[in-house]
Amino acid sequence: MNVITAKQVEELIKEGKTLNLIDVREADEVEAGKIPGAVNIPLGLIEFRMNELDKTKDYIIVCRSGARSGRATQFLESYGFKVKNMTSGMLAWEGSVE
């Protein structure tokens, strides 16, 4: 599984890179704050909403601690998506939130 740290994601955002972030936490968790620009697709809905994703794009998967995003990353990889798990999730995020 490909991984990326919260700090690396923050640096890419600071550099002005366009990232495709998918937050797999539940809606009530996301309401408390998410990485700006992240799209919320709860883990339980990934299977049903993966048709919204583009296999030519790279995605970074985010959750609270990295466990659910790890499961989502493995699932999407098995369908040919280019994904990275943000290790330690939002617990490690020090950047801005919306």
Rank of each mutant, 00 (worst) to 15 (best):
V62Y: 05
N20R: 07
V39P: 01
I35A: 02
M1E: 10
K84H: 15
L76H: 06
I4F: 08
S96F: 05
E98S: 04
K82M: 05
I4L: 12
R68H: 06
I61A: 01
I4P: 09
A72I: 14
K7C: 02
V97C: 00
A32E: 14
I22V: 08
K55P: 13
V3H: 09
T5K: 15
M90N: 02
V9H: 09
V83N: 08
L21P: 09
I35F: 03
V3R: 10
V62Q: 05
A27T: 13
S69Q: 05
G95Q: 03
Y79S: 04
R68F: 06
E47M: 07
E77A: 12
E10L: 15
A6C: 08
L76M: 15
I22C: 04
K14N: 13
W93G: 01
K55H: 07
V39Y: 08
L91Y: 04
E15H: 10
L53P: 04
G44L: 02
F48D: 08
D23S: 00
A92K: 14
S88W: 12
L43E: 05
I4V: 15
L91D: 06
A67K: 13
K84D: 11
N2V: 14
E31T: 11
E94L: 10
I46H: 04
A72H: 09
I4K: 12
R71M: 00
V3A: 10
S78G: 14
I13N: 05
L76G: 07
E31P: 01
M1L: 10
S69P: 03
G37P: 09
I4N: 02
I61S: 01
K7R: 13
K55E: 08
W93D: 05
V24M: 00
I46Y: 04
Y59V: 10
K7S: 13
V9P: 11
I46V: 10
G33N: 08
L53S: 00
I41Y: 03
T5A: 11
E47A: 10
C63I: 00
L21F: 02
V83D: 06
G33L: 06
L12K: 15
V39T: 14
R49K: 14
L12R: 15
A67C: 09
S69H: 04
A6K: 04
A67Y: 12
A67W: 12
V30W: 11
T18F: 05
P36R: 02
L45R: 09
E98D: 07
E29L: 12
A38K: 06
W93S: 03
W93I: 02
L53Q: 03
T18L: 04
E11H: 14
K14S: 14
A67F: 12
L12Y: 14
E26G: 02
D58A: 11
E11M: 15
K17A: 11
G95N: 06
E77Y: 09
V9A: 11
M90T: 01
I35M: 05
W93R: 04
R25L: 07
G95P: 06
G33Q: 09
R68K: 11
L12P: 10
P36H: 04
N2P: 15
V30A: 10
G66H: 08
K57A: 06
V24D: 00
I41E: 05
K84Y: 15
F75I: 09
G80R: 02
F48P: 05
A38C: 08
P42N: 03
Y79T: 03
F48S: 09
M50T: 01
S65Q: 00
V62A: 07
R25S: 05
